[in-house]
Structure formats: structure tokens, C-alpha cells
Design a protein around this nucleic acid. Sequence first.
DNA 1: TACGCGTGGGC
DNA 2: TGCCCAAGCGT
Length: 360
Amino acid sequence: MSRTDPLPFIRRTLLAWYDRHSRDLPWRRTSDPYAIWVSEIMLQQTQVATAIPYYERFLKRFPTVESLARARVSSVLKQWEGLGYYGRARRLHEAARLVVRDYGGRLPSSAEELRRLPGVGRYTAGAIASIAFGAGGAALDGNVIRVLSRLMLLEDDPATAQGQAVFWDWAERLAPRRDSGLWNQAVMDLGATVCTPRQPLCLLCPLGEACRARADGRQNELPAKTPRKAVPHYDVAVGVVFNDGKVLIDRRPAGAMLGGMWEFPGGKRLDGETIEECLHRELREELGITVGDVRPLVTTSHAYSHFRVTLHAFECRLATGRPRPLKSECLAWVSPAELDRYAFPRGSRKIIEAFRQRDR
DNA sequence: TACGCGTGGGC
DNA sequence: TGCCCAAGCGT
């Protein structure tokens, strides 16, 4: 193995392994490029098991690119509710409209053209082109980085641009020049089921004999990982404001975090402020209202991608002022039962659960 | 270019 | 329990 080129062995052996060990996944039972596209967007930074039920529901609700393009973004976000990274849903919707408008409803087939669609980066373009259209070339995701880093003993940091270049270079060197869909899925499946982040199953690996990291006993050290930044924590006051049996919700601006999602008004506690003082200030600044009958409803913790919060939710009653969307896109007064029609992030859902639990 | 962007599972 | 990680993209 050491004196001859290992790449032909690696290609042949992994494809033979995939023929016997490929996972049966919903998006592998279709050849519809639209469905494969939807799956690839959902799978960005998201585990397969999490994505499956969303994929099934999404395709039932939006079976074609035309149906997605016709839909309101609010409907798309409602289907995406709970999956996170909601910008993916907004960009997928925008891209569907572009595909209908500029491509007659047919997804372009080359990675280069796919790359121009919002939400489609280098990985996703390579994956769709190869899996749905039989193109050649690599698709480099976290699984492939892990497999390559160990197989070829690549110590570069994939978080840096230079590291990315090294990994893409190796991925392209290994990938078939034509019809690389099976190959790309084979590398990803190996990374997901055998060459796992912790405790890789080297004894089951078809490439064990060729793996340079394993030969050195260093498979647990790769890929190189950058130390994470400490994540800040905030206390947030949230107002569940009732009036005439309805509750006030607001929609977050499209450009912001959780853009397009609904929430209960509130915000971060400032230094030297009590959480109730924070509540009154936020409701004044965001809505121009004052409230009374303030009662604690629930306190719950939630982790976002880059910070953590403790949400202090208060039930209260509108006292003075007519709410205006001073910092949000729009407002709505809705009955508790109607809340399920709106797309809320997980943190807000926890608050909804709390007052439904209490009313029971 | 490094960072902002959600959520749930595994240990 | 707290931390790491997961089929990345946009800026």
C-alpha cells in the first residue's frame, strides 16, 4: 500500500462498501432534483434524524418548486418551525421563486449555476449536481472533512480558509470526474456511521488498512478543531400581554436573527436593572405601552447558536397605550388557540406551553 | 475572513 | 450537567 497510489483502492473499496451499507433515507428514494434540493438545505448543520420528519411534511405541503414559489414566506416558516437556522427557509423560498422565474421551474443542473441560488454554497451545489444530475466533482461537508483528515492525515484546520482549500483539493482529487453522486454519498455515510467524531469504529471501516491516522493511532485527534469562544448569557424579560382574551405577539424583522418568526415582546436586561424593570422598559420601547397585573409565568433557559438566555416570562394586562410595532415588523392580537397558526422559535414555544399548562 | 446564525442528541 | 457536534451559507 505504501509504494503504490492508494487512491484507486480507496475509490473501489468505499464504493463497494456503500453498495452494501448505504442508509435508506427518504431523499434517496427519489430522483426529483427539487426534493433532493430541499433535503440538502434541511441537512445543513442538521442531523439526518432531525431532518427526516421535516422533509416528509415539507414535501407533502410543497410538492413542487412551483407550489413553494407560490406560497407565502409565513407558510414556509411555519413548516420550518423548530428546525432552526430560519434563514435557510427564507432563502429556499426566494430561490424557488428565482427558479420559476428564470429557469421555467426546472432547477439548473450544473454546480456553477446552482451556486448562484440563495442558500446554495459550494457544498450544496456539488451535492445537488452530482446526486440529482449525475455531474462529477466533490461535495465537501463535515463528514467528508473528518474522513479525509484521518484517511490522509491532514492536520490543517478546516475552520480556516487555507484549511478549506486543502480539504477541497483532496476531495476533488478523490471524487470521480463524472457521476460522483454515489461516491459523495458514500464518503458522507462512512463519516456518519463509521468514521464518527468520537470513538470511530475503525475495526468496521473498509478503509482501515489505508487510513494514515489510524496507522499512527491518531484518529481521535483529527480533524483539528479550533477552541470555541465562550458564549455570553443574557437574562431576557418577556411580556405575555393580554387584552380582551387575546395575547399580543410580534414578528421579527427579516434581516434579524429569527427573522420572520413570531415572538412575545421583550428584551435583554441591562446592568443594574431588575427583570421587572426590564420588562416595563422593553414594552415601552418596543410597543409604546404600559402594563399592569404583572405576574411571573415561567422561567426557562434556552441556547441559541451563539449565546444563551434565561427567559423570564410575565403574564400581564394592557394598561395604557395602543401597541405599535416600533422595533418589529408587525403586531397581532390572537387568541391562545390561534397561536399554533404562527411560526414561533423554540424559546417562545416553551412559554406558550407554560400558560397552556397552567390553564389546564 | 471570521463570525452570526437554532436546535436537539450524545455522552 | 454542560459541552460538543451536526449533509454550511452569507457577509
